[in-house]
Amino acid sequence: MSAGNGTGRPLLAVNNIEVIYDHVILVLKGVSLRVPEGGIVALLGANGAGKSTTLKAISGLLRTERGDVTKGTVEWRGAPIHREGAADVVRHGIVQVMEGRHVFEHLTVDENLLTGAYTRPGGDALRRDLDLVYTYFPRLTQRRHVRAGYISGGEQQMLAIGRALMARPRLMLLDEPSMGLAPMLVAEIFDIVARLNREENVAVLLAEQNATIALKYAQYGYVMESGRVVLDGDARTISDNEDIKEFYLGLTGVGQRKSYRDVKHYRRRKRWLS
C-alpha cells in the first residue's frame, strides 16, 4: 500500500467538503483527502488556496470564525466528526497547531505545556509526557519557567508543537510550521516532527507553502488552488513533475527566467472524488 492514498480505512478521511464563511463566502469547493495511520501528508498551495480552512474544518476551529461545513463529511476512523465542537475533536485525538504559533504569552513554558493536557486526567502519565516533550525539544528545557511571550519564534513554534503533543494526539494538523523561521530552525523542527511521527506514531497533516521541505518529509501530497484539490500523488511524483513545480509550487530553477510565451497552456485536471 502506498503511504498516502492506500486502500483500507484511513485514519482521517475528508470527503468532498464545502465550507462557507458568514453564510455567503464559499471558501472550499469540494475538498477530499485522506491521512493513513502514522503517515505524513502534505497539503500544498499558495496563499489563500484553502489549506488553513481545510485544517480548521477538520479540527472544528472553523465555527469560531463563522465558517461552516455545508457539504461533505469529515470521518475519523470511519465515524463522522464534522458536526462536533473543537474540544470534542481534541478528545478524539486530533490536535491542530495553528499558523502563527499562538502560544499563551503570559503563561510560562511549563504552564503552556500543562495546559495542552487539559483534556486528559492529571497524574504520573502527565508528568512523564511533560518530560518526554522536553526530551524532544531540549531547547525548551532551559526556558521552562520563562513566559512564553519572551522566547524566540523558533522556540515558540516548538512550544506550540509540544503543547499539542501533550494532548496525546493520533493526528497532528500542522499549519505552516516554517513560517517566519530561519531555514536551519525549520529543518530542526521538521526533523523533530518526523521523529514524533516515527517514534510516537503520530500521523501528520502538514499545510505548507514551502513545498520543498514539506515534500521531503511527507509520503503523499495534495496541491490546492482556490478552494479545490487540483492534484495529488506520492511526494516523489509531485516533486518530480515539472508542470506541478512550475504552476503550483514555484520550484523551477532559480535564475532561468522564462518568457511568458514559454509557459505551457496547462489544463487543470478535473477531479471528481467520492
Binding site: S59, L61, T64, G85, A86, A87, V89, V90, R91, V95, Q96, V97, M98, H102, V103, F104, E105, H106, L107, E111, N112, L114, T115, G116, Y118, T119, G122, R163, A164, M166, A167
Partner: peptide
C-alpha cells in the same frame, strides 16, 4: 488545572480551543 485554563483562554481564545479547552 481550571485556573491555568482560565488564564490560557484570557491569552488566546482560539489557541485554547485548539487544544481542547471548552
Amino acid at each position: 488545572r481550571i485556573g491555568r485554563a482560565l488564564r490560557a483562554v484570557a491569552d488566546d481564545h482560539e489557541a485554547a480551543l485548539s487544544i481542547g479547552i471548552p
